[in-house]
Nucleic acid binder design. Sequence first.
DNA 1: GCTTTATTTGCAACATAATTGCATTAATAT
DNA 2: ATATTAATGCAATTATGTTGCAAATAAAGC
Lengths: 147, 147
Amino acid sequence: MAMENNTERFEKLLVKNGLKRTTPRLQVLEILSGRDSATSQPYLEQVMGKDADRVTLYRVLQAFEEKGIIHKVLDQQGTANYAICSDGCSAHEHHDEHVHFNCDNCHKIYCLDTVKIPALKVPSGFKVEHLNLIATGICASCADKVN
Amino acid sequence: MAMENNTERFEKLLVKNGLKRTTPRLQVLEILSGRDSATSQPYLEQVMGKDADRVTLYRVLQAFEEKGIIHKVLDQQGTANYAICSDGCSAHEHHDEHVHFNCDNCHKIYCLDTVKIPALKVPSGFKVEHLNLIATGICASCADKVN
DNA sequence: GCTTTATTTGCAACATAATTGCATTAATAT
DNA sequence: ATATTAATGCAATTATGTTGCAAATAAAGC
């Protein structure tokens, strides 16, 4: 049980990014870290309840995204979902070019960190900066339940 | 100049899909067909102006999408953009699994019909139904202008 | 061409989501 | 402990999307 305390880790993360250690921010990090898939903005709003103003949540998420602490994935409905970035991310370069999987059944969004997006041939003249691949279908967990 | 008139083509397209030939519908088809990239809902709204109600536009786009006449692409901001489907599309199966290119400069969305999405290896258990790949960067036209 | 039928539109009302300005509060530095 | 700066919460506003319904319009039948 010598593992570092979550809150401690998050506090360091905030300081490192020049953000103050505030309650709403720690709360968001706690929630996001406790989930195995990306978390939708509406869900966050619901869980935080009256603990934080809706506006604050918007601003916290925006700040985190700018600093590269979290990354945003839009699902097929255009709803924003957020997940904590792996260590490779930074304010200047998000290494979030892994595939996201949007389950049609449970609507969770999984970051498939291990699946890299294959290189792409585009028409000449186009300069690709980022790739964003969302797969939809049935996730492993939902497929299991059917059996 | 023996080429078939646009309006005529569109009227046939509507009838074929069991939709009545109405002014707002023809207008939307005209606008979409006159552009080299997908068209955002807000832009359509602006161009149509008071010619059509906002609600009508929503319904026209929805009907077209259901029939497979157009397809929707969400850009990186989650805004809906629409493009006329290539002939392979139908109500039951959209053959829109080509790459979309979202220009960071002009914000246009191009359908790169010629670029196919490469097959993908996902973790076992996940069943992929559809793939959706959006590349962002600078489009050929914007890259040209810089020179 | 006129009438009937069914679809489509436009309006109004409503619901939801997102943004902005500003005063108050809270966190860090001195 | 105080000063300084950042962050929050509230109120107001704007944008975005949805629903029900009456009026208008398109296609079909006479």
